[in-house]
């Protein structure tokens, strides 16, 4: 099987693509095919490319960068063993190491399950098709059990988000209604994202690489708008307007 030659996975730091040994052009063709298959899965992701011992020229790296751009992804790092590759990559202003960026995504890795374990943007079929560009999307109805909204930008719902429904957003999530389903804001690894709702009682709340369960108990029908954000290493919900 050829599938082992190009390996794509999501981590807390974006998408990691491993390219194995073989003819460069056919590997690029395979990568293209894989990206097309799951276009919505990777949309908006930042990509780190692992090329192993292979030597890549500046042109080849640029080509890959352009290819990913076409699929609404951005190349930010190329990791290779070869000095020539590294020079080509540095010349293009990209990283050659994974460890540097997004330190916030890894606050206390032992305690917070990095986003690697969390489902990524559009990881399963059946999600609602939404426009590819960033920005915000407005959903003006109740999201019911089994319904999912995925978007690389912000998501605004005018209506309730019922238990069993799911919102996965690259940016913030605003619910003008009761939020009782599962929400992942900053699903691309952005810990600065916030979730707000008129009634904030989600089954599970995720922001960036952080995850919180609802404290349980009956949320009651009273409307108390709240905002949830990451403070330190945990998700904190505060009544709207409270500093």
């Amino acid at each position: 099987m050829s599938q082992a030659r190009v390996n794509i996975r999501g981590t807390s730091d974006g998408v990691v693509v491993n390219i194995g040994a073989g003819d460069w052009n056919s590997l690029v063709a395979e990568l293209t095919a894989r990206l097309e298959q799951a276009a919505s899965f990777f949309k908006g992701g930042r990509v780190a490319l692992h090329v192993g011992p292979r030597q890549l020229s500046q042109d080849e790296v640029e080509h890959i960068g352009a290819l990913l751009q076409q699929h609404a992804m951005s190349l930010w790092a190329v990791i290779g063993d070869s000095e020539e590759t590294r020079q080509a990559v540095t010349a293009l202003g990209l990283e050659t190491e994974l460890a540097v960026p997004h330190p916030s995504a890894w606050t206390e890795p032992g305690r917070t399950p990095g986003a690697a374990q969390l489902p990524r943007l559009a990881d399963e079929a059946g999600g609602e098709e939404l426009p590819a560009e960033g920005g915000a999307v407005l959903v003006r109805r109740t999201l019911r059990s089994g319904q999912t909204v995925r978007h690389t930008g912000h998501v605004v719902v005018v209506g309730d988000v019922n238990p069993g429904a799911e919102i996965i957003a690259g940016g913030d999530v605003v619910v003008w209604g009761r939020l009782r389903g599962t929400v992942h804001a900053g699903a691309g690894g952005d810990d600065d994202a916030v979730v707000c709702a008129l009634v904030l009682a989600p089954t599970q709340l995720r922001i960036g690489g952080h995850i919180a369960r609802s404290p349980g108990g009956e949320p009651g029908r009273r409307i108390l708008p709240e905002v949830a954000s990451v403070q330190g290493d945990q998700i904190v919900a505060k009544p709207w307007g409270e500093k």
Partner: peptide, 12 residues
Amino acid sequence: VRDADRIIGLVE
């Protein structure tokens, strides 16, 4: 109720 909610979504 959870299943009913799912069904309502499908019916819609």
